[in-house]
Design a protein around this nucleic acid. Structure first.
Length: 112
DNA sequence: CGCCTTTGACCAGCGC
DNA sequence: GCGCTGGTCAAAGGCG
């Protein structure tokens, strides 16, 4: 799958499985937005990935909701987390999480 | 064969 | 009331 070539996307592995269910261009921010949903059944967690069409480095990932199950991937980089409290560890931790540090200007109501 | 990905269209809410 | 945007769903195709 060379989706990266088609969409130019390189979402960081968060340790969960996602299924893309939509992709639209948001004029409000002038960037593309992809909609992902957790592949689990009892999981209503959703993921939103947006990136600029001209600047792929401006990738932004926003997690919405929480997972009801533990992550599918665990051995990311030798993180010996041992099965201590995986179910309650990632509850509202990924709420409004954003990757990247190059905000365009708006999006976060700087003025307000 | 099963699974995933991609695109289009539809619907709803808001602004004017 | 209309136009526009944002968000979600559905269907089809390709690959292993």
């Amino acid at each position: 799958m060379d989706r990266e070539a088609s969409s130019r996307l390189q979402l960081p592995q968060d340790g969960y499985e996602w299924k893309k269910y939509g992709q639209k261009f948001i004029r409000n921010i002038g960037k593309f937005r992809s909609y992902y949903k957790c592949q689990r059944a009892e999981c209503n967690a959703k993921k939103r990935a947006e990136w600029s069409e001209t600047e792929p480095g401006d990738l932004r990932v926003v997690y919405e909701g929480a997972h009801n199950h533990s992550s599918s991937l665990q051995d990311q980089s030798g993180s010996s987390q041992s099965g201590a409290s995986s179910t309650s560890a990632n509850q509202y931790n990924l709420l409004n999480q954003v990757f990247g540090d190059n905000p365009p200007s708006d999006y976060r109501r700087s003025g307000d």
